[in-house]
Amino acid sequence: MKFAILADIHGNSAALEAVLSDMDDLGISEAVNLGDHMSGPLDAHKTAEMLIPLNFPSIQGNHDRWLVEQNPSDMSPSDKVAYDQLKPHHLDWLRTLPATMLVHDEVFLCHATPQNDLDYWLEHIDDDGSISSASLQEIEQKAEGIEASLILCGHTHKPRLIRLSDGRLVLNPGSVGSPGYESDYPVYHEMQTGNPNASYAIAEKSGTEWLITFRSVPYDTTRMVEMAKENDRPDWARAVKTGWVTE
């Protein structure tokens, strides 16, 4: 069993193309997708047209949920740009996606945590906006009741792998299309990887163990940077180009 793990594409069609090409070079045709597929001031339409026909097992992220639940007039600027590009059948696809999923009988998919699509699982946001790692006890509490040997999450855009005390793995593959962002939830903070590459991971079952490979794929960010600028999002342009929200 071998498959790719994608998350947080955020409408970056160029990054998605790079990841799919890298998968093809490695002979990997199967993947799972952890949500936040299209939202962003980039190329939601092309991303949807590329992604949906692939039929990867996919779940709904918080931005996917907002795209189908919110009134367009109440949407954030990034969600509204994506919404205006998407066709009814794209939104219908997002509506069909579950919040969590079990695949291959032992791989659990969620966007942020099993309980909530907004909370951070492997990190803390402190009151002053600083970011720290969650403790093993805190991570394990949110994994209670999940019998899968491999537990997948996204949302923070940070590639990480944690082994729980019982041997289960919790993996975040990083973000395909958004290497840095700002958020006001629960307080203002900046999440940034410091490099512009498209991130994803590969999982391979070998006997009773999982072999995990993190991939960091360079690609030409020019078109995505220009789209962000055209949509009045210099913060997105900077993050896509450099991996930093602030320089």
Rank of each mutant, 00 (worst) to 15 (best):
M1R: 14
K2W: 02
K2Y: 05
A4Q: 03
D8E: 07
E17F: 05
M23I: 10
G27S: 09
N33W: 03
M38W: 10
A44Y: 09
L51A: 00
I52F: 04
P53T: 12
P53N: 10
P53M: 04
F56M: 02
G61Y: 08
D64P: 07
D64C: 11
L67H: 10
L67D: 07
E69P: 00
S73H: 12
M75K: 07
K80N: 08
Y83M: 02
Y83T: 09
H90D: 04
L94K: 08
T96L: 14
T100D: 01
L102P: 02
E106L: 00
A112S: 12
P114Q: 07
G129Y: 12
S130M: 11
S135R: 15
L136H: 15
L136S: 15
E138F: 11
E144H: 09
A148V: 08
I151L: 06
L152M: 06
G154N: 10
K158S: 12
L164G: 09
V170E: 01
S175C: 12
V176T: 03
E182Y: 02
E182Q: 10
D184F: 02
P186Y: 10
V187I: 08
V187H: 02
N195E: 09
N195M: 07
I202H: 07
A203F: 02
A203H: 03
W210A: 04
L211V: 14
T213A: 05
V217Q: 06
P218G: 13
Y219V: 11
D220A: 09
T221D: 00
E226T: 12
A228G: 05
K229S: 00
D232E: 05
D235E: 14
W244E: 07
E247L: 13
E247V: 12
